[in-house]
Design a protein around this nucleic acid. Structure first.
Lengths: 144, 144
DNA sequence: TCGCAGCCTATATAATCTATAGACTTTAAC
DNA sequence: GTTAAAGTCTATAGATTATATAGGCTGCGA
């Protein structure tokens, strides 16, 4: 399951995608519209900024705005940043690999194969899912 | 990520698959061979018994043994039992559905689609992965 | 130079995961 | 029928992580 933090991040980013290239949006507004605790959102946006996905502007009229292009930010990137590994086992993770304590020997472990398959499919699907796509889909559905 | 509980369960079940139809195996042995805390394993095996995957025999010479056929137990069943939902979002879970607090309206949420895809692929792959397969794979690899 | 709004560190609270304790019940063997 | 083995069950301790909040600091614009 994704953490709330991660879900908040996705919602906030989609919100900012709708405002792409329209100047900074301040935290308060995002928090209210997306019903996210303001201080928690603050920490999330800061992380996204440090990851160069967002930029920010201080002072009056300041706020956050999307720095990367909406078509260049996918769900994998966001999830990795917020929640860490995508894989269901540490020993099959590409970015957060750790040996399984339970396995005596990774080579003779019959369990890994299935989870490697799951990992690859998950990566495939979620990397195809960009902010642009999500925002677009939301608009189309909304019009029905 | 799978919990330790779930990983322990899988390892214990694979161990019991190797002993299928060879009488009860007692907790102590499984705990030692698979390096699982005995008391924790106890609780896990009990749950698997209540789910009719294992049977047990009390008293001297007692222990646990596989009740279902190894080809009829797959990873989905085990994970659902130990960790709950397979899906990454509660609102796309088949067996543990819950509405997303964050979404105002599920119909207009552009995020769900990707996660429905991930869920379906995960189900497909992990339901094809049975205890029989895992145990077999382990033996073949071990012989190399 | 005033106040707005993001930046940063620390901490509180809650939930969940992992593990253990100990008393109880059933069964087999003698 | 007594004893010891082995699972059953309830309760709880301890550790870790997730979620949320507080409050002072910093840079920017008018």
């Amino acid at each position: 399951m994704l953490s709330k933090k991660c879900k908040y991040a996705i919602h906030a980013l989609v919100y900012l995608t709708d405002r792409y290239q329209q100047g900074p949006v301040h935290i308060q507004e995002i928090a209210e519209k997306q019903r996210i605790p303001k201080k928690f959102l603050e920490a999330i946006l800061l992380e996204l900024r440090n990851a160069k996905i967002l930029h920010s502007k201080k002072g009056k009229g300041g706020g956050y705005y999307l720095y990367k292009k909406p078509q260049d930010v996918n769900l994998i990137e966001i999830i990795r940043l917020m929640d860490g590994a995508i894989a269901m086992l540490p020993c099959v993770s590409l970015n957060y690999y750790e040996p399984c304590e339970e396995c005596r020997d990774e080579r003779t472990c019959g369990i890994r194969d299935a989870f490697i398959g799951v990992r690859d499919e998950t990566l495939r699907i979620l990397s195809e899912s960009t902010l642009e796509q999500i925002a677009k889909r939301q608009k189309i559905i909304g019009k029905r």
